[in-house]
Structure formats: structure tokens, C-alpha cells
Amino acid sequence: MITFSEAQLVAWISPILWPFLRVLAMFSVAPIFSMRVVPMRVKVGLAFLVAVCAQGVLGELPVISVNDRAALAAVTQQVVVGLAIGFSVRIVFAAVEMAGEVIGLQMGLSFASFFDPASNAQLSAVGRFFGHMALLLFVVINGHLMILMAVVRSFDRFPVNGNFLEALGQMRLYELGASIFSSALWIALPMIALLLFVNLTMGIISRVAPQMNIYAVGFPVTLTVGLLGIAATLPMLEQPVLALMQRSIDLFGGGR
């Protein structure tokens, strides 16, 4: 009769368990993977497949018994690091959506809001459009592969040692969160300048021809120029999204 000891089982399971937990935690918050249309069984199976395939590039991982006190700290560290990777990518989408909100406010479309079930919040039509464009661009630039590589390479920077507080201190996610406003302004700056020029032009016209109803003329003009400006500046969205993605991935050693 073939028998296995607990030490042998732990030695076989540990190399797969730690990457599996980290990838599964990332799947719970990362774009595309965290969508409700993706079944939980698919997420678990894909996380297990990634953990198995990553064994060829991962170094020797520590063997920690499930009865050991350090097992809980190690599990917590994997969950924290995985959630941080997904959250950092979420920040990129938040910056793009905020840029859309600013553009929609300048265009006068801030009142056209819809309920977004993914974020459980109200988003304007322009903000939601920019969010969908960022999601499509995320797939085109292989962002899903970038975050998977970031998870695998994060074991070099954040090895399995159970010290999740030290890992949080090294990530400095607060700096990435503070860049949401500057990044959103960077993306929306061409449209802000264009709409500001339109508003200044409409102000001059209202002074030159006071009999013209500027409120009746200004809205369709601003809306038309805004839509044309979005169509003209949308191809330039790739560069800031790529820069933000690279910055967020580099926090976890993905740029090495």
C-alpha cells in the first residue's frame, strides 16, 4: 500500500499553493478577470493553471506546513500582494474614467449619467465611453499578460516570508493613487484646451452680438466640437495608458 507523509504532501503542494493564492487574489479585482460574467470556477481553474505553468520560472519557494503558525501570515501576504496588483491596474482605469468625467463636464454632458454595475456608482456617458475604450486598449496591448507576468515576477521582489506589512510598505500604492488626478488631467488636457477655446470664442460672440441667444447656440456647438475632438484625440489615448500600466506593473518587478 502506497502511503504519503504530511511532510511529503506539503512539499508537493507548497510550490503551487503560494502562486495560486496570489493569482487568485489578483483575479478577484483585476479588470476583465473580475467581471461577473467570468464564473468563479473559471477563475479558480485559470489561477491553478497559471500557478502550475509558472513553476518553470519561479525559484525555490519555502515549504510551510499548514499546521505552522507562519502559514496564516504567508497566506495573508499572498492575498495582499495579489489584491495590490489588481488594485494598481484598477487605478489606471480610474484615471481614464476620471478624464472622461472631466471632458463630459466641459462638454455639458455631466447630467447624462448611468449606473455602472461594475463599480456600483453613477458614471457619465463620456466617462463610461472612455472606460470601455481603456478596457479594449487593455486587451489590445496585452495588459492581461502584463499583469500575469507581474504576478510571477513579484515573487522576486516580494518572496514568501509572511511579512505582508513590509510588502505593503515597499509597494507605495499611495503614490500611484495620488497620480490619478495628474494622469486624468494629462489625458483630458487636449480636450480641455479645445473646449476652453470654444467657450472663449462663444463669449466673444456674445459680446459682439448681444442679441444672439448664446445659451441656445452654445450647447450644440460645444457638444459638436467636443464629439469631433474626442474622435480626433482618441488615438492618442494609447501612450498615457501604456505609461500608466508600465508604472503600475513596475511596482511589482514587472519591468525587469
Rank of each mutant, 00 (worst) to 15 (best):
M1D: 07
I2H: 04
S5Y: 03
A7S: 14
L9H: 02
A11K: 11
S14T: 15
P15M: 05
I16H: 03
I16V: 15
W18E: 08
L21R: 08
L21Y: 08
M26K: 12
M26V: 03
V29H: 00
M35E: 14
R36P: 03
P39M: 06
R41F: 12
V44R: 04
V44W: 08
A47P: 08
L49K: 05
V50G: 00
A51M: 05
V57M: 11
V57Y: 06
L58K: 09
L58I: 06
V63C: 01
V66Q: 11
D68E: 15
R69S: 14
A71P: 00
L72T: 09
V75P: 01
Q77G: 02
V79M: 14
V80I: 15
A84H: 06
F87V: 12
V89K: 09
R90T: 14
F93W: 05
A95L: 08
E101A: 14
E101S: 09
I103G: 01
L105Q: 04
F111I: 10
F115E: 05
D116I: 01
A118D: 10
L123F: 04
V126Q: 04
V126K: 02
V126T: 13
G127I: 06
G127S: 15
R128N: 12
F129T: 13
A134C: 09
L136N: 07
L136H: 11
F138L: 13
F138D: 05
V140W: 08
N142D: 13
M146L: 14
I147A: 01
I147D: 04
R153Q: 15
S154Y: 11
F155N: 09
D156A: 12
P159S: 07
V160F: 08
L165K: 08
L165M: 13
A167N: 10
L168I: 10
M171G: 00
S179T: 13
I180P: 02
I180N: 07
S183G: 04
A184K: 05
L185G: 07
W186V: 02
A188V: 13
A188N: 11
P190K: 02
M191C: 09
M191A: 11
A193D: 02
L195V: 04
F197N: 01
T201W: 05
I204C: 01
I205R: 02
S206A: 15
I214R: 00
I214W: 01
Y215E: 05
Y215F: 11
Y215H: 10
A216T: 12
A216I: 05
V217F: 07
P220Q: 10
A231G: 03
A232F: 14
E238P: 00
P240Q: 06
V241Q: 13
L242V: 12
L242W: 03
R247P: 01
S248W: 03
F252Y: 10
G253F: 10
G254N: 08
